[in-house]
Structures are given as structure tokens and as C-alpha cells.
């Protein structure tokens, strides 16, 4: 049994309870959101706002729970190498580091300080959780603004939909980090012979250093997920813009979130660049995920440029159309990781 099994059990139980509460409250908030979306007059806006705040707070609590599990993984799952294997491994690592053209170095092992996993909070299903939590937090200022109750209702209804998807399809609590535990399972099962252990370590150690523990993991993915959340708000505002002109406050709301989203997207993409150079060398530029990200950034840049002229009738509709295309491009970019092969997917 893995040394972290009791923690996993506690994590799943607490997480399940939390998700049930989130789903129940989201259903209430979403119902009020739908009523507001469909009705001419505002209906229980204050209650809807309070529910949205509580849902966002519960999601933050769940995020802290994910952080707690990752801390336990750090504390309880060090990659301890048996003393008899240590000299062999350090010899092998030194030989790899000395190899001509190796653009990286794998630190030699110190038995007193075994390598430990510092898992980012947005891997596997955690990324959906972080994305939807970012959306939940972002809509809080939006639903307090003096914009139409229908728009506010739509934002909250979308929050409920996202939480339903989270619970039904991408729950990070029911089976935590399945790929990670499949990877490390054989090492901690203790059934491998010494040669098998050696091979297993040489698979786990570089992946730990260049994927899980790299500082870029704390910058590049979360910034992109925050931009995705902001683009979603811009998308909803753009839909309302399409419904008719003469609502500058809706355009301003969409633009405020577009600015933040573009900031995060651009910075996130830029910060992925040196990581890509380090991990893949120059042979990655036309990778499908990169292509789709450039496409999305180009469309987003277009939106921000045309928005300068949104006071003109045709440009108003063109800009709102682009806000919707931005969202479609974002979904397309996200799906790319699953459907298209390449460096980001490892297919």
C-alpha cells in the first residue's frame, strides 16, 4: 500500500462532501440566473449574488484541499533510492550530464535529501477545477455591476453549468491524480527487481524535474486558465452586444475582462517560450498546440484592435462577433491537446 493511502481517502471524502455542497448551491444560483435571463424584470438578484459568493468561497476551500494533498505528496512520497543503487545511479547521471550537447543537468542524488515531488495545483483534473474556480471568482465583480439583470443571470447560469461539468465529468476528488499515481505506482509498490528499479527511476526523475517540479508550471498554465475564464465573461458580454447596440456598459464589461484575459494570455504564452526552448529545442514551432495558441492570440489581438471603433454600427457587430470567435478559438485550442498529436500532448 502506498504511504499516502489514508490521506487520499480523507481527501476524496472531504472533496465529495464539498462538491455536493457546491453543486447544490450552484443549482440554486443557476436557477435564479436562468429566471433572470428569461424574465423582463430582475428577480432575487441579491440572493443570486450571495449564492454565487458562497459557491466561489467553497471552490476556494476545495482548492486549498488540493493544495493540502499536494503537500502530503511532497512530505510522504520522496523518491528514496536504495543505498546499493545509489552509486550506479549517480554514475549514470554524471555520464548523462557530461554528454556533448546535453543542454540540461540532472542533479546528482544525495541520500540525505531524496528528490520530492512539488506538484502544481493545475495538473490532470485540477486544471478544470482551477479554470472554473477562476471563472467563479471573476464573475463576482461583474454581477455587482449595474449591467442588465439578464447578463448577470447568464453569467451565474454558466457558473452552474461549469460546476455540473466539474462534478459529473472532471471531478478532481473522486479519483485524485490518476496519471501521476499510475506513473509512480510501480516504484512505491516495491515489487521491482534492482534493475527494474534503476530503469523506473531514470523514467521518473527527469519527468519530475522537467515537468512536475519546473517553475514554469507555476506560471504558464495558470495564466492561460485565468485568461480562459476571462474570455468566457467576454463571450457572454459579446452575445449580449449582438442582441443590440446602445448598451455601452455591456461593451465596457466585455472589454474589461478582455484586457485582463489578453494580459494573462500574452504573458502566459511568452513565459512558455523559454520552457519550450529548454524542453524541446527549436523543433516545436509548428506544433498543433502552438499553432492553435497563435491563432487564438491573433484573433484576440484583432478583437482589441477593432474594439477601438466599436462606436460604428458595423464595427460594433464585428467586434461582438469577434468576441464570440475568441471563445470558440479558446475551446478549439483547449480541445487541441486531446485531438491533435504533438509535443503538448505526448501522443
Amino acid at each position: 500500500m502506498m504511504p499516502i493511502a489514508p490521506d487520499l481517502l480523507l481527501f476524496s471524502r472531504l472533496g465529495l462532501g464539498l462538491m455536493v455542497i457546491v453543486l447544490t448551491l450552484s443549482a440554486g444560483a443557476g436557477g435564479l440566473g436562468l429566471v433572470n435571463l428569461c424574465q423582463r424584470r430582475p428577480f432575487a438578484l441579491a440572493a443570486m449574488r450571495v449564492l454565487a459568493w458562497v459557491v466561489a468561497g467553497m471552490l476556494v476551500a476545495g482548492f486549498l484541499l488540493i493544495g493540502w494533498l499536494n503537500l502530503r505528496i511532497y512530505q510522504r512520497l520522496p523518491l528514496k533510492v536504495p543505498p546499493d543503487l545509489l552509486p550506479w545511479l549517480n554514475q549514470g547521471l554524471a555520464a548523462m550530464n557530461a554528454r556533448e550537447g546535453a543542454g540540461y543537468g540532472l542533479p546528482l542524488l544525495d541520500p540525505a535529501q531524496p528528490p520530492r515531488y512539488i506538484l502544481p495545483l493545475w495538473i490532470e483534473n485540477g486544471k478544470y477545477y482551477f479554470w472554473f474556480m477562476a471563472y467563479a471568482l471573476m464573475i463576482l465583480p461583474a454581477i455587482s455591476r449595474p449591467v442588465s439583470h439578464r447578463l448577470r443571470g447568464a453569467l451565474v447560469a454558466l457558473l452552474a453549468l461549469q460546476n455540473a461539468i466539474l462534478f459529473l465529468l472532471t471531478d478532481p476528488f473522486s479519483r485524485p491524480l490518476p496519471k501521476f499515481f499510475d506513473e509512480i505506482g510501480p516504484w512505491f509498490a516495491g515489487t521491482l527487481d534492482p534493475l527494474g528499479r534503476l530503469g523506473q527511476f531514470m523514467r521518473l526523475y527527469p519527468r519530475m524535474l522537467f515537468y512536475y517540479n519546473t517553475p514554469y508550471m507555476w506560471l504558464h498554465p495558470p495564466m492561460l486558465f485565468m485568461s480562459y475564464a476571462a474570455i468566457t465573461v467576454t463571450f457572454v458580454a459579446s452575445l449580449f452586444m449582438l442582441a443590440g447596440r446602445g448598451r455601452p456598459e455591456v461593451e465596457v464589461l466585455g472589454y474589461d475582462y478582455a484586457k485582463f484575459g489578453y494580459f494573462m494570455l500574452t504573458l502566459g504564452m511568452l513565459l512558455g517560450y523559454p520552457w519550450a526552448l529548454e524542453a524541446w529545442g527549436p523543433n516545436w514551432w509548428w506544433d498543433p498546440k502552438i499553432c492553435s495558441s497563435i491563432m487564438m492570440w491573433a484573433i484576440y489581438s484583432t478583437y482589441l484592435h477593432t474594439r477601438l471603433y466599436a462606436h460604428r454600427k458595423t464595427m460594433w457587430y464585428f467586434t461582438s462577433g469577434l468576441g464570440i470567435v475568441c471563445f470558440a478559438a479558446m475551446i478549439f485550442t483547449f480541445i487541441t491537446s486531446f485531438y491533435f498529436p504533438g509535443e503538448h500532448t505526448g501522443q
Partner: peptide, 27 residues
């Protein structure tokens, strides 16, 4: 500025289309 922005929009749209083509070709 307006015409330069329209021109920029066209160029960015063309780059986007090439990116999409690249993705499908790659697959």
C-alpha cells in the same frame, strides 16, 4: 489608423488560417 487596423486584421486572419491548416496537416 482605421485602414491600418483593417489591414492588420486581414493579415492576422490569414496567419490564423495558416495555423489551422498546419494543425490539420500535422494530424
Amino acid at each position: 489608423d482605421f485602414y491600418l487596423i483593417l489591414l492588420t486584421v486581414l493579415v492576422l486572419a490569414a496567419i490564423s488560417a495558416i495555423c489551422v491548416y498546419g494543425m490539420f496537416y500535422f494530424k
